[in-house]
Structures are given as structure tokens and as C-alpha cells.
């Protein structure tokens, strides 16, 4: 007999220590049962809804990979037209690939049109469902199965696409960054996002045990390190102004974060590894300086 009261039910097929399962749990905990969730194709979708089972205790729909925001906008329009919108929250939960890469057209359109919904990007920085291929969310110098390190490459050559800034440019009244390593921060921001009228965006950093190469017990620890190194700044931006920044008490060197993951392991053995680590440190320092972390 299942004893939990959580809206995201156990029995799902997420890996032991899964970041997406944590993200889904926190989001539903924050928003409650009066919501409708849209999820694109991806790990979260596959491990939570193998027919005839579903981990979702709220109404939930998966259509395709790249149309999540458009599906959400149709739901919102329907609830309005049918007089059923009331306090029902519409929440789209997409991975980095679905959000940053293949789904960005529909997401941009839905935000520009101003639908009343919240889009949450759970960013584990690669296409994990298909076997850890590079996405626009993959960080600089990380190896993935399509950006392997080799004699002619140190891994992913480009930095992460700055998705929160893109969503901010749409005039969204609320854009926030958070991490599954800070459940209370994440739940507060997701709840706030759903309570603000209009298209709101929350970008959640989510370390993937399988894709990044670390022990499943360290999922939250890795997320914390990303924040403590300033590689993942957590903030809130309301009506275009930064209104809250998560301050770092003891800033840690990026090596601590990089060393803990297989995807950055090569940086500690290749000839120009130290130089690349220095560049990553510069990215972190820029964040710390830019956002006064």
C-alpha cells in the first residue's frame, strides 16, 4: 500500500537518484492539485507514464517533443473559452532539449502571445533520454556522446545558451533560476510563478546522475556545488528587474564541481586542461561579479 501523499507518485522508472523526479515532486508540492501539466517527450515523460501507468496525480498530457508551450497555450485558451480557468494553473515542464533547442519556436510564440501559464525548464544539460547527447544547455567543455573529448577536441566547444535572458526579452513578468538542490527556493519560485498572471518562466538546474557521471546519492550535492561555485546563479527577475539573488557564503573553486563528474574528467588529464578550467573559473567569476552573488 502506497503511503505517500505526494502528487507525484512512487513506482516511476526514474533512475535511482533522479533529478527529474525530484523536480516533478517539488513542482507539484508547490502548486498543488489544481493544475494541468504538459510535458514534452523526454526522460520525465517516459519514466513517469509507461502505459497503462502514470505517476501523475494531476491532469497531465504529453503530445510531442517540440510543441509543449503550444499545447499549453491551447489548454489555457480552452479553459478560458469554456469558463473553467478559475484558479487552475497550467504548468509546462520541459527538459533543456525540449525547451532550449527543438521547442524554442513554440515557447517564444506562446510567451509573446501572453498566455497565462508557467513554463519550467528542468535543465540537466544534455539529451539524457536518448543517451546523453549535447543540447544547447550543455556547458562549455563538458563531454557528451556527441561532443566527446579527443585529440582534436576538449568536448563541448560552446557555453550554455542563456535561456532565462531570452525569456526575459519576451517581456515575461517573472523569470527565475533555481536548482533542485534548493527545494524550498525552487518551490517558492515555482509557486510564485504560477500565481503571477501571464507567461512566467522558471529555469531549474538539475544534475543527472547517469548523464553527468556521479553517484546517485550526490544529485543534490552536485546541484549545491554548481550554485556555490557561481556556475549556476540563482535569481528572480520581476518585470525586468532583478529582485532577488541567492548569495553565496563560501564561494568554492570550480575544480570541486568539475572533479566530481565524469563529463569533466578529461580536463584533469589533457594538456590544455588547466587552461580550460581557468576559462570555466572565469565564467563563474563573471557570474559572481555580474549578479553580485
Amino acid at each position: 500500500m502506497n503511503k505517500t501523499t505526494e502528487l507525484f507518485a512512487p513506482g516511476h522508472r526514474g533512475c535511482a537518484g533522479c533529478c527529474d523526479a525530484l523536480a516533478a515532486k517539488f513542482m507539484l508540492k508547490a502548486v498543488g492539485e489544481n493544475c494541468i501539466v504538459v510535458t514534452p517527450t523526454g526522460c520525465l515523460e517516459v519514466f513517469s507514464t509507461p502505459f497503462p501507468e502514470s505517476a501523475w496525480n494531476v491532469p497531465w498530457i504529453h503530445s510531442l517533443f517540440e510543441n509543449t508551450a503550444a499545447v499549453a497555450s491551447g489548454i489555457e485558451a480552452a479553459l478560458k473559452a469554456l469558463g473553467r480557468k478559475n484558479d487552475t494553473k497550467i504548468m509546462a515542464i520541459g527538459g533543456d532539449g525540449a525547451t532550449i533547442d527543438i521547442g524554442i519556436r513554440g515557447l517564444s510564440g506562446a510567451f509573446e502571445r501572453g498566455h497565462d501559464f508557467t513554463y519550467v525548464c528542468v535543465d540537466n544539460e544534455a539529451y539524457m533520454n536518448t543517451g546523453v547527447q549535447r543540447s544547447g544547455g550543455t556547458p562549455f567543455a563538458a563531454t557528451t556522446t556527441t561532443t566527446p573529448a579527443g585529440k582534436a577536441s576538449f568536448g563541448n566547444l560552446r557555453p550554455k545558451k542563456n535561456m532565462p535572458q531570452i525569456m526575459l526579452a519576451h517581456g515575461s513578468p517573472y523569470v527565475a533560476t533555481t536548482s533542485i538542490a534548493y527545494p524550498k527556493d525552487m518551490m517558492r519560485k515555482v509557486k510564485k510563478a504560477t500565481e503571477i498572471t501571464g507567461p512566467t518562466y522558471v529555469h531549474v538546474h538539475a544534475p543527472c546522475t547517469t548523464g553527468w557521471g556521479f553517484d546517485g546519492s550526490k544529485t543534490i550535492e552536485l546541484g549545491r556545488l554548481a550554485v556555490q561555485t557561481a556556475l549556476w546563479p540563482m535569481m528572480e527577475i520581476e518585470n525586468g528587474d532583478i529582485t532577488g539573488v541567492h548569495k553565496i557564503r563560501n564561494k568554492r573553486p570550480v575544480e570541486e564541481y568539475l572533479k566530481a563528474q565524469k563529463r569533466f574528467k578529461h580536463l584533469f588529464s589533457i594538456p590544455d586542461g588547466a587552461e580550460i578550467i581557468k576559462k570555466i573559473q572565469e565564467l563563474a567569476d563573471w557570474n559572481a561579479d555580474q549578479y553580485d552573488l
Partner: peptide
């Protein structure tokens, strides 16, 4: 009536919004 006309940004989103709306009972 209360019909919502959505000026989507592509046909891909047009039909995707149809899916969401229809599943919601519209």
C-alpha cells in the same frame, strides 16, 4: 461566443494548440 482565436506563430503550433484545447474539452 467566448471563442478564443489564437494567432499562433506557425502551423506546427496551430495544430499543437488544437491538441491542448481539444484535450481540455474544447
Amino acid at each position: 461566443g467566448a471563442c478564443e482565436y489564437i494567432t499562433v506563430e506557425s502551423e506546427f503550433s496551430a495544430i499543437s494548440a488544437l491538441i491542448g484545447a481539444s484535450a481540455a474539452g474544447a
